[in-house]
Every structure is written in C-alpha cells, then in structure tokens.
Amino acid sequence: MDEKLNQLKINKNAKQIKAEIISNKKVGPYHHMVFAVGDIALSVRPGNFVAISVGGENSASILRRAFAIYRAIDKGLLGGTVELVVAPHGSGSKWLCSLNVGDFVDLIGPLGTAFGIPTTPANTMLIGGGYGSAPLFALAELLKNRGCRVDMVLGASTASKIYAPLEGKRSVSSLTLSTDDGTAGVHGQITESIPRLIREFNTEVIYSCGPMSMLSSINKIAQDFDLVHQCSVEESMACGIGVCMTCVVPVRVEDEIKMLRTCIDGPVMDGAKIIWDKESAIEAITK
C-alpha cells in the first residue's frame, strides 16, 4: 500500500487495566516500582512504555504520565509484572512514588515502538542518561541472547542519579560511567567519552535513551561514524494513545518532513531521520 495510506495504529497489545503495586523501593533519588499487570507482561518489548493516571479520583491532574518499562516478567499462572524506575519530578510522579504496596493505579500498556534488533550479531553500544538507562537493561539482555556484543555507557549529573542495578549489569561486556561533577566514572558530559569508546569497541549500532539534548549530541556522533542510531525520545504527552497530537517530533519521511507522534511512531525512532535542530525544524514545518 501507498506509504501515505498506511494505517498507523497504537501498539496492538495495549490494554487499560487497574494494576496493583506489589513493590515500591527507593533507590537513590529514584523509586523502583513493581506492578501486577497480568498478561500485559507477555507482550512487552524493550523500549515500550506505559501511561498511568495520577493524583487519584478527584485529581486536578487530568493527563496521564508516561514511563519507560524497565523490565517485564511473565510468571505464568501467577500473572506478570512490569517494573518502572520513577524520578519524583513534579506533582504526578511524586504522587506515584508516594503510593503503597496494595494500592492500584489505572495503567495503559504496553505502548509505543520497541528497539529494533540487528538481524545478525553486531557490536552494540547502549547509552543512557539518568533514568534513561531504565529500558536499556532489558534491551541488553535481548541483544546478548542474540549474540551481540553489548557495551553500556551510563551518565548523569551526579553519581546517585545513575541507575545501574546489579542484576541489570550481567548482560553487558563493559560498563562505563560518566558524571558531570566527577563523583563517579569519567568526569564530564556523557557524550565526551563516546567517540573514544566507539573506536575501542568497534561499535556498529548505537541505542540511546535520555534527555533530548543528549540524544541530539549522540546523533551527531553516530552520523560522524556512520552508525545506525536508535533512540528513545521524550516529548510531552497528553494521552499516550495517539489521539491528541501533542507528542510529535519532526521526522524525514521519504522526501517530506512530517510531525510524527512519539507515542505511536516512537518513542524508539531512527535518530538519523529526526530533525534535531529547532531552527531547521521550524523552517521545515512552516515552509
């Protein structure tokens, strides 16, 4: 069918459920939270996210909040779980972090696209900024099982903001840390170490997740080295299910620029096709 007429649908496995919180633990500045989600866990792919209602019944916060899935485990008859790493940021995420085991939330998932996996074993580098590391551990495991080399690079402003649980590290061949204040690993911006590591590990594919400014810098490096770059982007989302058109990014589709919804065509997107620079984006969409 003509590309233009393609029916763009939301993740076909997405369901709306009441999910019970079965664990909520503070890990540094984050909360590691586990939700009972039944058979939703079966259809989760690394890169997918969930959208959760916040604030309770009479909340003045009317929009859902998006969180990347850190891990999904299917326990057969016992049902499945989905795990998130939540940073208490504003009122909605703080409310979520304050919930107790046994509380229920209204959750929709799995949503969005997943990281693409190379068809033949490749040397991969997974780069995460802050809680952006969350979806990368499940990806690392999958890549390792497919015979890929996995080098992980995690960065944050300060040591405590690097999320790198022990269990997450077993799938990686190397782990490099970097902090802006030098409290852990390499002193400096995460992107400063990347070119050297790419040469060292003969990286062929880059996966990234973190703040947009970091993704944009990584994309420049990926282009300099002519590498495939799959990134998980983070735009403000009002609905998470494709009906509001607020979450768009400008993307090159054939010879046109289109504003694609990151909740449907993302969050995982081809970095090379995104128009990263704000000025060019404005020019492209207003011409």
Binding site: A60, S61, I62, C244, M245, C247, V249, I257, I285
Partner: peptide, 29 residues
C-alpha cells in the same frame, strides 16, 4: 498540514492548553 512546533501542551489545574495548529493529512488522504 504539519501544525505547530513543540511543546504543544501544558497541563493546567483541571485542564490543559494545546497548540496543535490543525495538523492533519488533508482532505484527499
């Protein structure tokens, strides 16, 4: 139409602001 540049939304107390700019595929599609 591509509509407006992001950010396109801001949550407000019991409401939200949107500035989509009528993004859409056009009447033919």
């Amino acid at each position: 139409r591509n509509g407006r540049i992001t950010p396109r939304m801001a949550e407000t107390p019991s409401g939200m602001l949107n500035s989509i700019g009528l993004q859409g595929p056009g009447i033919d599609v």
